[in-house]
């Protein structure tokens, strides 16, 4: 295996209105299968992706939120949520279906700077 790179996925879109959230998740799973150092960042409406209790029967769309719980199996354990975005949406850590690290905007920015590859969704 060649050198391991630091991949960061920046998720800024709510699920289901657009295809971004699902596409990001798929690329995350592919990247993780190649033993890379993967971290996920959720900010702005992206924090909604992790909301517990999604029920998509009524909109006849696949509920892909359970897959976030499988990330651990893929050794993707670095999930960061922006505090400001979370607070502005009336959400708390208990609302998320996986455990996350809550950071400030400044910390998120610094983390972005550390990456080899940043993928934007």
């Amino acid at each position: 295996m060649s050198e391991v790179k630091k991949f960061m996925f920046v998720n800024r879109k709510a699920p289901y209105g657009t295809i971004y959230a699902l596409e990001s998740l798929e690329v995350v799973l592919i990247t993780a299968a190649f033993d890379q150092d993967v971290s996920l960042m959720f900010l702005d409406d992206g924090v909604y992706q992790l909301k517990k209790g999604q029920q998509t029967k009524g909109i006849e769309t696949k509920n892909f939120s359970p897959a976030y719980r499988a990330l651990e199996d893929y050794d993707v354990e670095k999930l960061y949520v922006d505090k400001e975005s979370m607070d502005a949406r009336g959400l708390t850590e208990e609302d998320f279906l996986v455990s996350v690290t809550v950071l400030s905007r400044a910390e998120m920015g610094a983390l972005m700077d550390e990456q080899d590859v940043v993928l934007s969704f």
Partner: peptide
């Protein structure tokens, strides 16, 4: 059923 994805081989093996 649990995660709505088919696991990659590495994950399948581990699980």
């Amino acid at each position: 059923e649990e995660y709505q994805i088919a696991p990659a081989v590495r994950v399948l093996t581990k699980s």
